[in-house]
Design a protein around this nucleic acid. Structure first.
Lengths: 333, 333
DNA sequence: AGTAAAAGGTTAATCGATTAATTAAAAATT
DNA sequence: AATTTTTAATTAATCGATTAACCTTTTACT
């Protein structure tokens, strides 16, 4: 089956006009006496009849922009990133942008590959949740004036558009509340990584327990991304089977929360009886437990919206002022 | 800051050769005496020095393909689709393809919009989880010879490349096993929709209970996608608060499972004490319950791999035989 | 020495869309 | 009637990469 590709030229030939005329009409640039009413109508009708779909590669090449953006996340199968992606796509569509998603798997080298790849596809800008150690990479992108926005994680030293949440404050407040409820020996479990957002969460926890004179360095445990399950089991044992038994655990991310609760259940530790837990991020599971788990809810849709706004602002005006936006997460108890 | 875009022409000018020569070298087409060893090396070095990144819009325009594919799912924030997307992207990257993801939100009109959009971006092919009622749309794509593969859901009447699982068999076997364990009044909850994959699951359930002489039409309940929570509560009440009280429920998808379990907990019905449940699809939550939930696990990574294989096969050879592949899901108890 | 073959390039057309610059005819104005 | 303005188009260059078809120069062979 031979199907001829419908281009501007085809439409033009069928109507006996030039491709330029067709282009003007189809782009709505036929104002003040450029093309006659009658011809406009014939062109529009013919385009519909032939089911003309503009070739955005050609358009992008000519115009110097692709009307697409890259979204770089750690792992699209993680609900947090999936939800972020969904909302970014929805807003992007309204603005006429396509989103191309790349997964770093938290690895710097993957992130570099993805960026090169997205650049070759001429994305107009990038929304990035940067991997650990990618500060220099981001800096180099800024140097070549690439429009980009960091989301979820930032680099405080870098002057780069970012959409972040109040990690420190919300953690501080939440832990304060936990302590106010009578818990005397709270612990914190986070990833063994040097990322600003998790560092801030840790700082929030530590300041809160220090202010209540409850700080014990051993109560802050770290687990690795790659060996989450094993590390978590060990951490849980350390926290619960020492003489210094903790009575509450704050989990720093959604994946850590899931692994943590799983480990607690495995060790037959009863949540809210033997121990209280508090999670960062909402998950499907959290509403399904026979116990209530207080958790910190991030405004994901708002984060998506803001980061797209900031990005488009920079795409359309490379000299726009660089802004960092801080949104509020809230404790749902 | 002015950053000159590095094109073939720039490299050529710097070296005093033609753009053609640069293109030949950079594409490895400098064999049998096309370009000298020395010049090849100089070109490669210069390209690296200038950090040349080929413009894939230009390349795509010239070559007639974009080396990108569209992935159309219902909702990328759903873990099943997120995981599928992750794996498809991983395999696609190896084959040199970009993946552009679109969300239909299960709506036909959204699906139409996304397809037009992806076509304008000149995707070379599509991997689709078709929305309800999209059979004609798929047919029209086949008519214009668009390479596509259906995944997760198929249209048995259509001769279209598909990657599906053994929905009927696995449900039949799983329900059989449930009955074998002594449950005498099992129920089934699915979406109120006419989709082959869920129909097959329902058929598996019904045949299994019929074969055990336990079939009761009222035990098959349907809920809507839009009002999942409300409908679920009502369904649960109907199944449990009638004289005909069921003793097991089979949930047809992951979202239904989550909503179902949530509803059971809300009504203070004790799972595995008052009632047994069985779920289609794995979810984060499933491992976290203090009770064991048997579930049906789909080979998502294999589905991703196969669908990409089938798609690339069709992209590269439009006359390749159309194949439907059936993979095996398994019951994890 | 004369011719053929190999080596090492270059030219120019092309993909499809955009748009500044131009042209030509018709209508309006003086 | 002559000039200006308006209307309604067209021409041609351009974006960046690819590649068939050429063109020189050098080397090989009889």
């Amino acid at each position: 089956m031979k199907v001829e590709k419908v281009s501007l030229k085809i439409i033009a030939k069928e109507l006996g006009v030039s491709a330029a005329t067709v282009s003007l009409v189809l782009n709505g640039k036929n104002k003040n006496g450029r093309v006659s009413e009658e011809m406009s109508k014939r062109i529009i009708d013919k385009a519909a009849e032939l089911n003309y779909i503009p070739n955005s590669l050609a358009k992008g090449l000519k115009m110097g922009h692709s009307k697409s953006i890259g979204l770089i996340v750690a792992d699209i199968s993680n609900v947090f990133f999936g939800t972020l992606a969904l909302h970014i796509q929805n807003y992007a569509e309204k603005e006429g942008y396509t989103v191309i998603i790349g997964n770093t798997n938290e690895k710097l080298e993957e992130m570099e590959k993805i960026i090169a790849f997205l650049n070759s596809r001429q994305v107009d800008g990038l929304i990035i949740t940067p991997a650990e150690g990618s500060e220099e990479l981001i800096e180099s992108l800024l140097k070549v004036n690439k429009p980009l926005v960091l989301v979820d994680r930032g680099f405080p030293k870098l002057n780069v558009p970012s959409v972040l949440i109040n990690n420190y404050e919300i953690c501080y407040r939440s832990v304060k509340q936990l302590i106010g409820q009578g818990y005397k020996n709270p612990a914190f479990i986070t990833y063994r990584q040097d990322q600003y957002h998790t560092n801030e969460r840790k700082r929030g926890f530590i300041e809160a327990v220090k202010d209540a004179d409850l700080y014990k360095p051993d109560n802050v445990q770290e687990v690795s991304y790659q060996m989450l399950e094993k590390d978590m089991d060990e951490a849980i044992i350390r926290l619960l089977h020492s003489k210094n038994r903790v009575d509450a655990i704050f989990f720093a991310t959604n994946t850590i929360s899931m692994a943590g609760i799983k480990s607690l259940l495995k060790h037959e530790i009863l949540i809210q009886k033997d121990i209280q837990v508090m999670c960062f991020d909402e998950t499907d599971a959290i509403n399904l437990f026979p116990f209530r788990v207080p958790f910190i809810k991030q405004p994901i849709e708002e984060m998506a919206k803001r980061s797209l706004e900031l990005l488009i602002e920079r795409i359309e005006n490379k000299n726009a002022k660089i802004r960092k936006q801080f949104l509020e997460a809230e404790l749902i108890a």
